[in-house]
Design a protein around this nucleic acid. Structure first.
Length: 878
DNA sequence: CACTCCCGCCAATTA
DNA sequence: TAATTGGCGGGAGTG
């Protein structure tokens, strides 16, 4: 009998008949133990007894195919009856029993019987959904293939998808480890977070496929190449063995699977049409969109969908659209994930940088979004750990192509930002906005939450236009219009709470910090991250985002980029970009609950301040940036020079940071002046602080008063500071109200000289580089969305999103764009964004749109600076 | 005819 | 070099 079985096992494709059994190891599943032939006996044996069984035997003996069919039938029966709907588990049992049946449907296995979905069910039936932790079940591909009577190729399809969800992990060649669904929720959560970052915006618009598509296209193009995405998926989980395995290039199926799942998790409707998914995935992967590619993608999606369906995570549905009904899938799996950011951290803090980043972002986001501020979380976040994680990432790969990292980074950042946005939105929706945002105009919050995000995402893209708007805000700013870049700069807007994440984006790791910034804690982490990034990245980093310092005073440094900009302003710009968002965010938080560690209290204005500070800080870093800047356009270079000079001064913002990098007190004074001008109290504080104290001390001082978080960002943009700060502060503060706030903020920015800020952002963007160019493209789209309401927030979110897509590089740009657009539409709110843009532009300002482009380069610089700052902050950290 | 998606060639990776 | 993985797309089964 045993022999018999074996023969059966071997499918027609004799490929490998080998003694399959051997492989099985531990625990197989309940049903059979593959390993020993004996197992085989299980089912088969019974057969012999029955007439049918005998028949089967004969048949199988006669032809492998028949055997297979029979097997399938057995397995399926239950399944077939219920169709997929049945739960796999039940199936399993059934299967076992069925042996008796044999109705002889044998007829040729219909295509359905051979479907991947069915095969997958059979596969899953073999393993427990929740295996005991103690027992590790290993899966031998050969064995399974033979048992299931299919070629190995098919098993790969299943395993790859399962692997993407961490239900299994590859242990070795031909060996996989079965984990079951224990970690499924965590994995889904991660994917959701990542997805939000990447697709959040898109999904919001889901209904509008076009939008999405467009956006996607732009974003992706802009941003980085898809490689970015992978990381998300990768998350290395703690699981058992796996870790090692991922090397392959892409494993598109795995990545696709993750992305596909992300789309569901991000989608509000939880329904994703195949064509949209295909388009999105194609874009990510590659630009080319030829039809054939699309078809191929769809084929793959079907493969994935079949497996996911078997997992009961999705089900097929049809959506009717204008053009008719389209095939689609609806997510029927868990939507809420118990895991919390905190938990996530716990998972593998060190293991994957990205994951951590995401987590942090999430955490921050939550905080922000919620408005509730979870001090604890923040605190934890603030904790060096997060930062470390980021740093690790950065540092770890320093050598490797920065871009890639950056991209990843960016993507992560973006993702985070996106997630945050979404969350925020949700939060706002669900529970009106929380205090944090309150800063923003009230409406903003709510709007912000709801509309903004969605729109923001894309709309933001429009940023370009927004940039214009910005100018509007402040005529003076107009100059900046430099334009596109400006829009990007808007990222600054991100300042809005939602954006925080964005902040991160800029420098990548740094940004993450931003989130923290807002909260306060963030700052610390960010800095660290930033530091790493900057260091490794040198120029790119230069601008490190901000770091934030956290807590109480939060100071983040946002690094402006290292010098890129000619003038301080330029620096500021860079910083700002990244910062802006932060600042925005910060403000909100402050408003909401000062109490929080950081005492976010300060509200918008504070945020601004922060930025300023950051800028200052950045300046120190600037020098480094300079080098990179060289690459930048003329403007940049000039700016760089300026920065250099300033650098020394810049330190202020990040108190701690500064010291490390450079103590640039001198400059501070300048800034200080500016701020005062602004008139806002908060600004003033900041400035004074900056001035008086050494860079660091100052920063800290100021921050504290304000709300710190923001500060962090600013550091980078010190230069811009003055301008920005003052404006923002003044108005923002009082305005606290939502709309006003944003407006004010924006105003401020613009006032301050958007240019300066803008430059910063730009630089950031630039850093992103590749993305930069893309960003522009994006911008156009954004306009459509107009995120009038929350523009700031939205913008940020948007930017963040975009960033994601771009991954590292791109995202910054994207963000900017988004912001602008949003800003434009929104009035007050929009203003802010605009301001950001303006800033960016301004620096360049001077006018050149070109400058914006250059910004890209700057961004990189910024990033580096940011990183530096981060580092500093880290060290100095509160 | 449009959807699905099976099948297996064959290239990229690994061992 | 052989084996393992897995991208890919032709084209067949279904409705």
């Amino acid at each position: 009998e045993n022999i018999f079985d074996r023969s059966r096992m071997t499918p027609k494709t004799p490929i490998k008949n080998e003694p399959i059994d051997l492989s099985k190891q531990k625990g197989c599943t309940p049903e059979r133990n593959p390993i020993t032939p004996v197992k085989i006996i299980d089912k088969p044996q019974p057969d012999p007894w029955t007439p049918t069984a005998n028949l089967k035997m004969l048949v199988s003996a006669a032809s492998p195919d028949m055997r297979d069919r029979e097997k399938k039938k057995e397995l399926f029966r239950p399944i077939e009856n219920s169709e997929q709907s049945d739960t796999p588990d039940s199936l399993q049992y059934d299967i076992v029993d069925d042996s008796t049946v044999e109705e002889f449907e044998k007829q040729r296995p219909s295509r359905k019987q051979k479907s991947l979905g069915l095969l997958c069910q059979k596969f899953l039936a073999r393993y427990p959904n929740y295996p005991l932790s103690t027992e590790k079940t290993t899966i031998s591909l050969d064995e399974v293939a033979s048992i299931l009577g299919v070629e190995r190729r098919r098993i790969y399809d299943i395993v790859n998808v399962l692997e993407s969800l961490h239900l299994v992990s590859r242990v070795a060649k031909n060996q996989y480890c079965w984990h079951g669904r224990h970690n499924l929720s965590q994995t889904l959560k991660k994917l959701q977070e990542a997805g939000e970052m990447q697709y959040g915006e898109l999904m919001t618009f889901q209904h509008k496929e076009q939008d999405l598509e467009y956006k996607f296209g732009e974003q992706k193009k802009e941003t980085v190449p898809d490689s970015q995405d992978r990381p998300l998926l990768d998350f290395s989980e703690p699981d058992c063995t796996s870790a090692s395995a991922n090397s392959r290039k892409d494993k598109s199926l795995r990545i696709m699977s993750q992305k596909f799942v992300m789309l569901f998790l991000v989608s509000k409707t939880k329904i994703v049409t195949l064509d949209i998914a295909a388009k999105i995935l194609i874009e990510e992967t590659q630009d080319t969109v030829d039809h054939s590619k699309f078809k191929t993608k769809v084929r793959r999606l079907y493969d994935i969908a079949n497996v996911l369906t078997s997992l009961d995570l999705i089900k097929k549905v049809h959506v009717t659209e204008e053009r008719g009904r389209k095939p689609a899938f609806k997510w029927i799996g868990p939507v809420e994930f118990s895991g919390k950011t905190g938990e996530l951290r716990g998972h593998s803090p060190s293991s994957d940088p990205l994951p951590e980043t995401q987590r942090e972002a999430c955490a921050r986001y939550q905080i922000c979004a919620t408005g509730k501020q979870r001090l604890t979380r923040h605190a934890s976040f603030n904790g060096a750990q997060p930062c470390e994680g980021i740093r690790r990432k950065v540092s770890s790969e320093p050598n490797s192509p920065r871009r890639e990292r950056q991209d990843e980074y960016c993507s992560k950042m973006i993702n985070l930002a996106a997630v945050c946005r979404q969350k925020i939105e949700e939060d706002t929706r669900n529970s009106n906005i929380t205090s944090p945002f309150s800063l923003f105009p009230v409406p903003g919050d709510s709007d912000f939450c709801v509309n903004p995000l969605p729109q923001a995402v894309f709309p933001v893209v429009q940023a370009e236009v927004p940039s214009l708007s910005l100018p509007i805000d402040i005529s003076s700013q107009a100059p900046h219009p430099s334009t596109p870049a400006a829009s990007k700069t808007e990222d600054g807007k991100p300042a809005l709470v939602p954006n925080q994440p964005f902040l991160c984006f800029p420098s990548s790791s740094v940004f993450v910090l931003c989130g923290g910034l807002q909260e306060s804690n963030l700052s610390e982490t960010q800095p660290t991250a930033g530091d790493k990034g900057t260091r490794s990245a040198e120029a790119q980093a230069a601008v490190p985002p901000a770091l934030c310092q956290k807590r109480g005073s939060h100071k983040c440094t946002l690094p402006s980029s290292p010098g890129d900009h000619e003038e301080p302003a330029a620096k500021k710009l860079n910083m700002e970009q990244s910062d802006l968002p932060l600042s925005l965010v910060v403000p909100k938080k402050p408003f909401e609950s000062p109490k929080a560690e950081s005492t976010p209290g300060s509200s918008c204005p504070p945020a601004v301040h922060l930025e300023t500070y950051c800028l200052d800080l950045a300046s120190p870093a600037a020098p480094e940036a300079r080098s990179k800047e060289s690459t930048k356009p003329l403007d940049c270079q000039e700016q760089e020079k300026l920065f250099q000079n300033k650098d020394p001064d810049e330190p202020p913002p990040g108190n701690e940071y500064i010291p490390k990098e450079n103590a640039n007190q001198p400059f501070h004074p300048q800034y200080l002046y500016v701020q005062p001008t602004a008139g806002l109290s908060s600004f003033n504080f900041l400035f004074s602080a900056n001035q008086a104290p050494s860079a660091i001390s100052l920063a800290s001082n100021q921050l504290p008063s304000l709300s710190v978080p923001c500060v962090m960002v600013p550091s980078a943009a010190l230069a811009s500071f003055p301008l920005v700060c003052s404006p923002s502060f003044s108005s923002p503060l009082s305005p606290v109200p939502d709309g006003s706030f944003s407006a004010a903020a924006s105003m401020n920015f613009s006032m301050s000289s958007l240019a300066s800020t803008t430059p910063v952002f730009i630089s950031t963007t630039a850093v992103v580089t590749p993305k930069v160019s893309p960003a522009p493209s994006v911008e156009p789209q954004q306009p459509a969305h107009p995120a009038l309401h929350l523009s700031p927030v939205l913008t940020r979110s948007c930017s963040a999103v975009k960033l994601d897509s771009p991954m590292c590089v791109g995202h910054p740009v994207t963000l900017l764009k988004l912001q602008q657009p949003s800003s434009a539409p929104l009035t007050p709110k929009s203003i802010r964004p605009a301001h950001h843009e303006a800033f960016f532009k301004t620096p360049g300002s001077l006018g050149d749109p070109v400058a914006w482009k250059k910004n890209e380069g700057n961004q990189t610089r910024n990033a580096s600076s940011v990183q530096r700052r981060l580092e500093i902050s880290g060290t100095s950290a509160d």
